[in-house]
Design a binder for these strands. Sequence first.
DNA 1: CGTGTAAGGAATTCTGACACG
DNA 2: CGTGTAAGGAATTCTGACACG
Lengths: 112, 112
Amino acid sequence: MANDSSYKDKKVITIGIVRDLTGLSERQIRYYEERKLIFPERSPGGSRKYSFADVELLVEIANKIEDGVQTHEIRKEMLRAQKKQNQTDVTRKMIQGQLNAQFGLRKGPSSK
Amino acid sequence: MANDSSYKDKKVITIGIVRDLTGLSERQIRYYEERKLIFPERSPGGSRKYSFADVELLVEIANKIEDGVQTHEIRKEMLRAQKKQNQTDVTRKMIQGQLNAQFGLRKGPSSK
DNA sequence: CGTGTAAGGAATTCTGACACG
DNA sequence: CGTGTAAGGAATTCTGACACG
């Protein structure tokens, strides 16, 4: 019932590789983090770790900035998209709850 | 017609992350490379880069070694599996060729 | 054979700051 | 605002070798 959680979202890529993958400078990558557009994890020693999803997001961010969109605007866009997604999740769960209440599908007290 | 080529096979993970992901020591990881069981790429500076597929393979290798299988045996197993896969590919391509010759599906000179 | 470790060096990454526009 | 850069330091990685069993 959970998501794939497989490779795409695992934070395992260091900044140098991300630089090579995206063509961005390390300065740019760190700056977008400073502007709250990207959220790498950290190794115990403090090195940033990114996922493939992060890499793709970085490219999108860079494209928007090239189009003259400011980081603050990009951030607001992302928050809006985030909120919409959350709402979708809530809706989906509510509907699922309704269905379960009405028909008691799966996960009901099976044995005992 | 080509494969996914997406995330799983991209060599983007440094050895420290692989260590954390697998629980193996860097010594072990480098040794398995020395024994031709694993083939990381290198950064321009010489740092090893692994894929998620490599990470999974390393775990399998480590399990076999725990079972007392020697690296040389593991290597032979891998070569056998490799050969079998190649044969499968060849067979698939031959059959595809037969089909194309018989029925001329797709890729035939369509327009012009 | 498979792995740990200390050794020395090189590559990688980090932060805070100054610069430009 | 977004990015380049030089600066100094710390974390990361590399290789070759000795050790053990």
